[in-house]
Amino acid sequence: MPGYKGHAAGALLMGAGTLAAANWLGWYGPDPGTAVLLMGFVVLGALFPDVDTDSIGQKLFYSLLAIINLTLMILGHYKWAAVLGFCALLPVVARHRGWIHTWWAMFLIPMAIFIIPIVFYEVPWKNLLPFYLASVFGYFTHLLLDRKFV
């Protein structure tokens, strides 16, 4: 099982390859800023399953979330900061290698990124779908590298 560096590197490689392929095939071609943001979601998704342990990956994950959350608050995007904060709390309700390391959690946990803004903030689902898929993909790379699908 790789550590945080392996999970982050694997997510970056597979995420960049998938995004490049989707762009090349004409399925999805985000602007450069959105592409970088999507890659951030891929990496955060890949690190998420191990944030319930005291590790460097946990510190990196929560440091990135703190920076993002503070930036959102400074910019006055309190609703998005609340969604991010809610999602960050999910690992504390599980034990390591428990339900967070399952294929169904890969779809369920990122669903908060997708459903909460639609229900509470009336954001069109089409605007959020790429970010949900990026989070699921990052999560998938974690489980794949942990050999949960073998």
Rank of each mutant, 00 (worst) to 15 (best):
N127M: 15
L13H: 06
I113L: 15
I118C: 14
L70N: 06
K126N: 15
A105I: 02
G98P: 01
W27M: 13
T18S: 11
K5S: 14
M39H: 04
R147V: 10
C87Q: 11
L133Y: 04
H96W: 05
V93C: 12
A8P: 03
M106Y: 00
L25N: 05
D50S: 04
L64A: 10
A9N: 09
H101L: 04
A94G: 11
L144K: 06
G57R: 00
M111S: 15
V43G: 00
W24R: 14
G98F: 10
I116R: 07
V119H: 07
M111E: 13
D54V: 08
Y4W: 15
L143I: 03
I74E: 12
V93S: 15
E122N: 14
V150Q: 13
L90N: 01
S55G: 06
M14Q: 10
N69I: 12
I68N: 03
W27I: 15
K148N: 02
G6K: 00
A88T: 09
I115H: 05
A112F: 13
R97Y: 08
A88F: 02
S63Y: 05
Y132I: 01
A112W: 11
D146N: 13
F41Q: 03
L129G: 03
P91R: 02
G98I: 05
G138F: 01
L90H: 06
L75R: 13
I74K: 08
W99D: 04
T71Y: 10
V123A: 08
P130C: 05
P32C: 11
N69F: 04
V92H: 06
F149P: 03
H101Y: 04
V93A: 15
H101D: 05
G138A: 04
D54I: 04
G15C: 11
M73W: 09
G33C: 10
L38R: 01
E122R: 12
I74A: 12
C87N: 12
A112R: 09
V83G: 00
F48V: 02
L129K: 04
W104M: 07
N127Y: 14
V43W: 00
L12H: 07
H142R: 08
V43E: 00
W24V: 14
I115F: 06
L13N: 07
P49E: 12
A46D: 08
P49T: 10
P117I: 00
R147A: 14
H96A: 05
G138D: 03
A134M: 05
Y78A: 13
W103R: 09
L144H: 05
A11Y: 07
L145T: 05
M73D: 13
V123Q: 08
H101R: 08
L37P: 01
H77E: 13
M14A: 15
A88V: 05
F137V: 01
L108K: 07
T71G: 14
A46E: 04
A8T: 11
W24K: 14
A21H: 03
V93L: 14
M106D: 02
L64S: 05
V51F: 01
K148M: 04
M39L: 15
F48G: 00
M14L: 15
M1F: 09
A8R: 01
V42H: 01
F120V: 07
A8L: 11
P32E: 08
W125M: 11
L38G: 01
I116S: 07
C87F: 13
K148I: 00
A35R: 00
F137W: 07
W104Q: 09
F114L: 12
V42W: 03
N23A: 15
G45F: 02
L72C: 08
G85K: 08
W27S: 12
V136N: 04
